[in-house]
Design a protein around this nucleic acid. Structure first.
Length: 566
RNA sequence: UGUCCUGUGGUGUAAUUGGCAACACGUCUGACUCUGGAUCAGAAGAGUCCAGGUUCGAGCCCUGGCAGGACAACCA
């Protein structure tokens, strides 16, 4: 293992797939080549689960000096769209991976696939079945009961050839006929019971247009595409495990050398409090439960990006969770830990007040202003310092003041002295309230000798507060996100729809926040730490007059935690 | 009452050819601190699904159970 403790990236772990590849290499398989592929279907946006697969596949290529292709599995035109193929490319690139000149589509192979089907017919290994879906399904039997042969199973090669030709020409209606591989109706594996390999679909395909009236099924396309691309290790998720004998069967019909791709399955990612099904994510988007695929509450790559996650943090997360065949559930807190870890080291610090409470420094000269030095990132000296304006009227966080502070509340209270970060020690002298008894303003005095945050007499103060000068503050909107679902496993309940668990408080918009002027120059997706609060990132919805910040994740907060446990 | 897969602290992953069950997250202490952050130090927490067997020695090998998951779209 490589010692990369310097950059603190998690050490790259090995896993069972790496071991199997090493073994294949030792045995001299496939001329020592390692070639993987990431094969999304363009029927939705990529999510964090895909990120795991992307990191795995591209990571293997990197580790073994091989290659990794991007291949769109576009065999079902009724669900696939160009918008998705574009978003997928963007997301893979953003994650930091490069397929170079190897971007392919299953539809690139439609011609070859069709020829291969004809070859199987000629060899008596495929036949046209005239029955409808329901009949075929019934004949297939059940996992515990063998299937029965179709009455059309023993048609002549000539008849099959003719029928398939006419299916291809569009002479028949959708659903009226299919092409099936002739394998074994009695197989204990349902996928070997004469699987359907071509169906009639008169849909417009996003790439081939109206050229085809028949489209290959997944099982008939995937392995063959792997074969033609020279893939050596075809890595997919556990649910395809039972497909493997069929995958191998088609490869056996195709191969003419020692080379053969090998399918290896691993457990897909499950995260607590989130759903990973593209179908369900699409439902949230279509029915407006969220604001699009890139809503920052979505587990999509584009949602995480907009939320303020970094590619590094997602890659580190993938590395940390490992790769196995155990179907488990990862705690989201591990994902959150990964962003905090990265952002702590890289994010520009800034002061911002979410729930403002006005403070007047009564002994500060009326029209005076000054600029104080603030550190941009205490974890990274090279990021330097900046100036923060200070004046008589400030905003502090409402939560940072309590009129009757409980034990262990160290922040501001009547008569108490605290430090304003990088500025002065201040002492609260008066609490101003409105007729309803609501606190509207605080009066404080400051100690001019404590400029910069230290008092010459060495007296200590228990808390440091963040603040913003009222006159210089940039009024901003801040969007606070919480988990989208309030159940650990929203889709794990048999009789309850996952939408029942939608968290009504997953988005809280704070329209009147104040942030220090430094943020004026920022661009969407810039990352900040609002000191003492959390990590925030500028949203695309920002206007120059009014920036909008998304909270990526709050800082760990031992005070809040102690309160919760009460 | 089929086939295939999987069972290791709360969670996720490790443990060369059998050799004192390790690491990360989380949790709890304490130190430090101009972020109640970060950092640092420490602690608790599993005897590896169960039962037999082989062995000086089993998480790992053998036998038999048990539990969970996948498979019966003209989806991928």
């Amino acid at each position: 293992m490589i010692d990369n403790s310097e950059n603190k990236e998690p050490v790259k772990k090995s896993n069972f797939i790496h071991s199997q590849i090493e073994k294949d290499l030792q045995e001299g398989k496939n001329d020592g080549r390692v070639h993987t592929r990431f094969p999304p279907e363009p029927n939705g946006y990529l999510h964090i689960g895909h990120a795991k697969s992307i990191c795995l596949n591209f990571g293997i290529a990197e580790k073994f000096g091989g290659k990794c292709n991007l291949r769109f599995d576009d065999t079902n035109p009724s669900k696939e769209e160009m918008e998705y193929v574009e978003s997928i490319q963007k997301d893979v690139r953003w994650l930091g991976f490069d397929w170079e000149d190897r971007m392919f589509y299953a539809s690139n192979y439609f011609e070859k696939l069709h020829e291969f089907a004809i070859k199987l017919i000629n060899e008596g290994k495929a036949y046209v079945d005239d029955q409808d879906a329901e009949t075929i399904s019934k004949q297939k039997g059940t996992p515990t009961r063998p299937g029965q042969e179709s009455p059309f199973r023993n048609r002549t090669v000539e008849e099959n050839l003719d029928l398939f030709r006419r299916m291809t020409l569009g002479e028949f209606d959708e659903g009226s006929r299919v092409l099936r591989a002739k394998i074994d109706l009695a197989s204990p594996n349902m996928h070997m019971r004469d699987p359907i390999i071509y169906r009639i679909m008169k849909a417009h395909h996003h790439r081939t247009g109206d050229k085809w009236c028949v489209y290959p099924m997944y099982d008939f396309a995937h392995g063959q595409c792997d074969y033609w691309e020279g893939i050596t290790h075809s890595i997919c998720t556990l649910e395809f495990e039972v497909h493997r004998p069929l995958y191998d069967w088609f490869i056996d019909q195709l191969k003419d050398s020692d080379y053969r791709p090998r399918q290896i399955e691993f457990a897909r990612l499950n995260l607590t409090y989130t759903i990973m099904s593209k179908r369900k994510l699409l439902e949230l988007v279509k029915e407006n439960y969220v604001n699009g695929w890139d809503d920052p509450r979505m587990p999509t790559i584009s949602g995480l990006r907009r939320r303020g996650y970094t590619p590094e943090s997602i890659r580190n997360f993938s590395e940390r969770i490992g790769v196995t065949k155990v179907d488990g559930m990862i705690d989201v807190s591990l994902l959150e830990y990964s962003v905090r870890e990265h952002l702590n080291k890289t994010a520009q610090r800034v002061m911002g007040v979410l729930n403002p409470l006005k403070v007047v420094i009564t002994n500060y000269p009326e029209n005076q202003e000054e600029e104080l030095d603030a550190i941009n990132n205490p974890e990274d000296e090279s990021m330097g310092t900046r100036k923060v304006p200070f004046s008589k009227e400030l905003y502090i966080e409402r939560d940072d003041f309590m009129e009757e502070p409980p034990r262990k509340f160290f922040r501001l209270a009547p008569g108490r002295e605290v430090r304003l970060r990088y500025a002065y020690f201040v002492t609260c002298t008066d609490v101003v309230k409105d007729e309803n008894g609501e606190i509207t303003e605080l009066h404080c005095t400051y100690d001019p000798a404590s400029k910069g945050g230290n008092s010459p007499d060495g007296r200590k103060v228990k808390a440091t507060l963040h603040w913003v000068s009222a006159k210089h503050a940039v009024k901003s909107e801040v969007r606070l996100y919480d988990r989208l679902f309030n159940d650990e496993d929203p889709s794990g309940h048999k009789d309850v729809d996952f939408k029942e668990f939608l968290n009504p408080d997953s988005l809280k918009i704070l329209p009147d926040c104040y942030v220090e002027p430094f943020v004026k120059a920022s661009k969407p997706l810039d990352h900040f730490q609002f000191e003492r609060l959390g990590y925030f990132s500028l949203d695309y919805d920002s206007k120059t007059e009014k920036p909008v910040f998304n909270r990526t994740v709050p800082l760990r907060d031992s005070w809040a935690k102690a309160q919760q446990n009460k």
